[in-house]
Design a binder for these strands. Structure first.
Length: 652
RNA sequence: GCCCCCGUAGCUCAGCUGGAUAGAGCAACGGAUUUCUAAUCCGUGGGUCGCAGGUUCGAGUCCUGCCGGGGGUGCCA
C-alpha cells in the first residue's frame, strides 16, 4: 500500500492534458505537515499559478474540480494561498487496515527487483572489534533487510581486512611474546594481548621520538600567541583572526603533547612493556618487515597467518551471532590479493594510470591528488584492492548497485574510486558511499576510555544487556506490571532490550550526523528508544492474548474496522504509511526514516491504548475492530523492528 | 593552503524533493492510576534555526560571504 503515490497518481491524472510536465508538480503532494489540515496536502497551485498566469486559489479550484478521489477521500478543501488538503475516508482507512492485517507482507508491494551488493562491517581481522564497528554493521544490516523485504536481491559482503599491517604486528608479537600455554587454552585472548603489546610499544616509540618536536611546537605556538598579544596590529580584524589561529595552534599542540605523554606513560608505567620497548627497538619497522614477508609468501609467516585467521574469525563471528547478523560472502582483502597486479597492468595498458615519482598513479579530472595503485616499493594499496573488488564483483555478480557502508572520513577515497571505476568502463552500476558520522563519547570526542583505549564491542554489548536487566527486570516494576518471569525469561528479555537499545540508538540517528554513545541514556528505556517500541508491541500482544475473540491474519476479514475516536483514526493512518516509510528509508539509504516511523506508530498506539479500551469496549463489534487495530499494529511493529535487526518479546 | 561535513529549545536529536504557527525525547513543573503491563497518557514553560546578505509568492531547507566546530588532504586503511 503506497498511499502517497496513489494520491499522487490521482493528481497526475487531474493535471494531464492541461499542464506541461505534470510529474514535477505531483512531487509536491505530501503527508500533511499538521494533522489539522488533513492527511495529505498538495502544494501545487502556487508554482502552477506562475506558469498558467492565474491566481493560485483559482488554480487550486480548477485542480480540485478535475481531481477524482471520491473513493479515497472526503471532498478536497483549499486553504491559505492555495494549499489543497485531503482527508481519507474512514471506511477506506478501515478497509486498508484489514488488508494489512490479513496480509503476511502487511500490504507492502513487491518492487521491480534490483541486484545490490552491500559492503559493510569489514572489521580488521586480528584486531578486537570496537564501538567504531557498530555503525557500519548495524546500518548495513538494516539496509540489507529492508531492501530484501521490498523484493530486491541483496548480496551482503563482509570485506574483511585480513591482509593488512596488523598481521605483521601479531606475527612479530607471536614470535617474541607468546605465552604458549595461554595460546593453547585461550587463543583469542592471547592474540589480543600480543596485539596490544605491539601496538602500545609502537605508539610509545613513535611518541618518544615525536616528544621533543611536540614540545618545541607548543613553545613556538605559545610564543607566537604572546607576540600577538604584545604587538597590536594596525588592522584590528586581522589581529583578531591571527590571535584566534594562534590560540587554536596552542590548543592543538597541547592536546597532541598530552596524547603523546599518555602513550609514553602507558608503557613506562608497566614494567613488562617497558622492558619490551627497550629490547625491541624500532618495533614498527620490524612488524612491517613481517607484513612484507607475509605478502611475499614467506612460508613461516603464511603458516602463522593461516593459523591466526580462523581464531580471529571465530571471535568476530561470535559478535555477529549475538547481533543476529549474517553475510553471504566474506571475501576479505586476501581474496583479491592475487588480482592486484592484473588491475594495475590493465590500468596502465588503457592509459588510465602512469608512473609518477616511482609510484603508479591514476590521475583523475577534478582531483588535485592522484589515486595511487602501486607504491614506489612495489606494494599495492587499498585503492588497488577496491578496484579489484569492483572488477571481480561486476564479473561475477553483475549487480545494479554497490553500496559501501563506510565512515565519512573516507568520502574522498570513494569519490576517486568511483571516478576510476567509471573510467574503467563501469558506468551502468550505481556506486554509492553510504557514509556515516562518528560515534562520540560523553565529552563529544570520539568514543574512547579515559586512558585513550577503545572499548571492546563485546564489553559494550554486555554492558547494555546488564543495564537493561536492571531496568526491565526490576522486581518492583515486574510486580506492578503483574509479570512473573523465570530467570531464563528475564535474561532473554534483557538481551533483546539491551541489544535493541544499542542498535536503535544508532539507527534512529540520521546516519550522516555524529552521535553521542551513552549507554546509560539509550538503556534508560524512556522516550525514543527501542524499549518503548518493544513495550508497545508487548502491550498489544497482551491484549490479543487476553481477548476472548482470537484475531489473526486468517480471520480479520470478519471483523470490520470502525474508526470513531481520533486516536483510532490516527493509528490507522499511520499503519497505512508503512510502505511509504520503507520506500523512503531506502531511497537515499537512511534507516533512520524507518526508525522514526516505528516510533511514531508506537506513540500512536500508546495514545490509542490510553484512550480506547479494547477489552472493555462498548460493544462486541467495536471490541473486535480494536483487536484488529492491535493485531495490525503488532505485526507492523515487529516486522519493522525486524527490518532494523531488532527483536521483540511477548511480555516485558 | 585546498576539499568535505556540521552549527535548530538547558541537554540529546528529527525536520524527505523549499510550503501554512519550526518538532520529538530527556531534564523542570502541573495533572491523570480500583492499569486491557503507568517503561504510559494529557498539559505548561523553554527557539534571533551560528551571523549577514541574496534568490523566491514562500527559506531551517537553495546561493554567496563571514564566524565557530569536526574531518580529509600522493605512496596507512
Amino acid at each position: 500500500m503506497q498511499i502517497l503515490s496513489l494520491i499522487q497518481d490521482r493528481f497526475l491524472q487531474a493535471l494531464e492534458g492541461w499542464v506541461e510536465d505534470p510529474a514535477q508538480y505531483v512531487e509536491q503532494v505530501a503527508v500533511a505537515r499538521d494533522a489539522r489540515f488533513g492527511d495529505y496536502q498538495a502544494n501545487i497551485a502556487m508554482p502552477l499559478a506562475k506558469t498558467l498566469g492565474a491566481k493560485p486559489r483559482e488554480i487550486a479550484e480548477q485542480i480540485v474540480e478535475r481531481l477524482q478521489v471520491e473513493d479515497l477521500c472526503e471532498p478536497a478543501t483549499i486553504a491559505g494561498p492555495g494549499f489543497i488538503n485531503l482527508k481519507l475516508k474512514l471506511n477506506y482507512l478501515g478497509e486498508q487496515v484489514t488488508h494489512i492485517a490479513a496480509d503476511s507482507r502487511l500490504s507492502v508491494g513487491q518492487v521491480t527487483p534490483r541486484k545490490y551488493i552491500i559492503d559493510y562491517s569489514s572489521p580488521n581481522v586480528a584486531k578486537p572489534m570496537h564501538v567504531g564497528h557498530i555503525r557500519t554493521t548495524v546500518i548495513g544490516d538494516a539496509l540489507v533487510r529492508i531492501l530484501r523485504f521490498l523484493g530486491h536481491q541483496v548480496i551482503a559482503d563482509n570485506h574483511l581486512g585480513d591482509w593488512g599491517t596488523q598481521f605483521g604486528m601479531i606475527i612479530y608479537g607471536y614470535k617474541h611474546f607468546v605465552d604458549p600455554a595461554a595460546f593453547e587454552t585461550q587463543p583469542v585472548a592471547e592474540l589480543g594481548r600480543i596485539y596490544r603489546i605491539v601496538q602500545s610499544v609502537i605508539a610509545y616509540q613513535a611518541a618518544v621520538l615525536k616528544l621533543p618536536q611536540a614540545e618545541q611546537k607548543l613553545a613556538l605556538a605559545r610564543q607566537r600567541r604572546q607576540q600577538l598579544d604584545a604587538e597590536p596590529n594596525a588592522d584590528a580584524k586581522q589581529q583578531k583572526k591571527e590571535l584566534k589561529a594562534a590560540e587554536r595552534s596552542v590548543k592543538a599542540a597541547e592536546e597532541e603533547l598530552e596524547g603523546l605523554r599518555q602513550k609514553v606513560e602507558a608503557v613506562q608505567g608497566d614494567s613488562e612493556l617497558r622492558s619490551i620497548a627497550q629490547d625491541h627497538e624500532n618495533i614498527e619497522q620490524k612488524a612491517q618487515l613481517e607484513t612484507a614477508k607475509l605478502h611475499e609468501g614467506h612460508a613461516e609467516n603464511l603458516e602463522l597467518w593461516k593459523k591466526f585467521m580462523p581464531i580471529s574469525i571465530t571471535e568476530i563471528e561470535s559478535v555477529y551471532d549475538r547481533l543476529g547478523i549474517r553475510f553471504d560472502y566474506t571475501y576479505g582483502e586476501s581474496f583479491y590479493q592475487p588480482m592486484l597486479g592484473g588491475v594495475v597492468e590493465r590500468l596502465i595498458e588503457r592509459g588510465l594510470a602512469e608512473e609518477n615519482e616511482g609510484a603508479i598513479c591514476v590521475f583523475l579530472p577534478g582531483f588535485d591528488t592522484p589515486m595511487i595503485v602501486r607504491k614506489r616499493d612495489g606494494a599495492f594499496l587499498y585503492a588497488t584492492t577496491d578496484l579489484a573488488t569492483i572488477e571481480y564483483r561486476m564479473e561475477k555478480f553483475s549487480p545494479d548497485a554497490m553500496l559501501y557502508v563506510v565512515d565519512h572520513r573516507q568520502s574522498e577515497h570513494f569519490e576517486k574510486l568511483f571516478a576510476a571505476a567509471r573510467a574503467m568502463g563501469y558506468r551502468d552500476v550505481e556506486l554509492k558511499h553510504i557514509s556515516f558520522g562518528t560515534v562520540l563519547g560523553a565529552d563529544g570526542k570520539p568514543f574512547k576510555t579515559r586512558s585513550g583505549n577503545v572499548l571492546g564491542l563485546d564489553y559494550l554489548l554486555d554492558e547494555a544487556v546488564e543495564r537493561a536487566y536492571e531496568v526491565v527486570c526490576d522486581p518492583a516494576r515486574l510486580q506492578k506490571a503483574g509479570l512473573e518471569l523465570s530467570e531464563e525469561e528475564k535474561r532473554h528479555v534483557a538481551n533483546v532490550v539491551g541489544l535493541g537499545a544499542i542498535k536503535y540508538a544508532d539507527l534512529s540517528h540520521n546516519r550522516t550526523s555524529d552521535y553521542k554513545f551513552d549507554i546509560a541514556e539509550m538503556v534508560q528505556l524512556e522516550g525514543d528508544t527501542a524499549a518503548y517500541i518493544q513495550y508497545m508491541y508487548a502491550r498489544a500482544s497482551s491484549i490479543l492474548r487476553k481477548a476472548e475473540t482470537e484475531v489473526n491474519a486468517a480471520n480479520v476479514e470478519r471483523f470490520p474496522v470502525m474508526l470513531q475516536e481520533d486516536a483510532e483514526r490516527a493509528l490507522a493512518l499511520q499503519l497505512l504509511q508503512f510502505e511509504d516509510a520503507l520506500r523512503q528509508s531506502v531511497s537515499e539509504y537512511y534507516p533512520s526514516v524507518l526508525a522514526a516511523y516505528l516510533y511514531s506508530l508506537a506513540r500512536m498506539f500508546a495514545v490509542f491504548f490510553d484512550q480506547c479500551s479494547v477489552l472493555k469496549a462498548d460493544s462486541t463489534p467495536l471490541q473486535q475492530s480494536r483487536l484488529v487495530l492491535c493485531y495490525a499494529t503488532r505485526q507492523v511493529l515487529s516486522t519493522g523492528l525486524e527490518l532494523l535487526g531488532i527483536d521483540v518479546v511477548e511480555r516485558m
